[in-house]
Nucleic acid binder design. Structure first.
Lengths: 130, 130
DNA sequence: GCTTGACATGGAGTCCGCTCCAGGGAGTAT
DNA sequence: ATACTCCCTGGAGCGGACTCCATGTCAAGC
């Protein structure tokens, strides 16, 4: 699979795909005899994993570390698991932040919905509240 | 309330607080006679709102726009509501991405837990899967 | 044989969101 | 009066994550 096809399939630019590989986030992708990338199943699953994790806000550094550990083989199983669990923890934290913000947004929107805005006017003079 | 106190209360650096004000994210904070910021209730609720929204990944631009609309008064009520609803939509999208990643992370962690790693070895030779 | 077009590389540039000065007051303590 | 601490401003610097670009190579079509 060419870089263009992968790019289209995953919605990541070819530049981004090459970038990911350059920085060691994705292990070296196989090449054909003229040096052109030819993504195989393993490379594709890396791309898919990375895309998913990045979309969740997992940092590049952590993913590079995971990739590095993976390429070192089985003696890093424990370390990999620990890394994943730490990322999971952080992910839950971010989700909780978002849940709180969502609640707050919903309240604000509801206030706008009810035109419960006179409250706003009462506050003027002592400064406005958002 | 001094910038230092606000900084400590919200866990945002004084630099960040000044930055937020500079770029118009937080409306001008009242000053005492020597020009030093003296945060009042309204300023504090802006800080709190911004902190909450930023933690949820809402972009600075959208928040500046909200602040700008707010300062323009009631004729922007509709626009503000629309802005909030759009941010809500994006927030839900991000949360959905994170939910998917969490599921994926959990699966992976479970595989490590069960030492269900022999699968990994089977794949070697055709390239590894993460 | 020559043009075309996709791909490769290394490095520079961009955008976001802070973060860190340098230089300069103001209020307080000694 | 001097020193100290906290605050001010404007501007430069930084880290993360791409994104763009100049230049070069190769296979295919005309």
């Amino acid at each position: 699979m060419t870089i263009r096809e992968v790019s289209e399939q995953f919605g990541l630019s070819a530049d981004t795909l090459r970038y990911y590989e350059r920085i060691g986030l994705i292990p070296p992708v196989p090449r054909n005899k003229s040096g052109i990338r030819d993504y195989d199943g393993a490379s594709l699953s890396w791309v898919e994993l990375i895309k998913c994790m990045r979309a969740a806000g997992v940092g590049i550094e952590a993913l590079i570390e995971y990739s590095r550990l993976f390429q070192q083989g089985e003696e890093t199983l424990e370390a990999r698991k620990a890394l994943l669990m730490e990322q999971r923890r952080q992910l839950l934290e971010r989700m909780e932040d978002m849940r709180r913000s969502l609640e707050r947004l919903d309240q604000k929107i509801e206030r706008y919905e009810q035109n419960l805005v006179p409250r706003e006017r009462e506050l003027r003079g002592q400064g406005d509240s958002p």
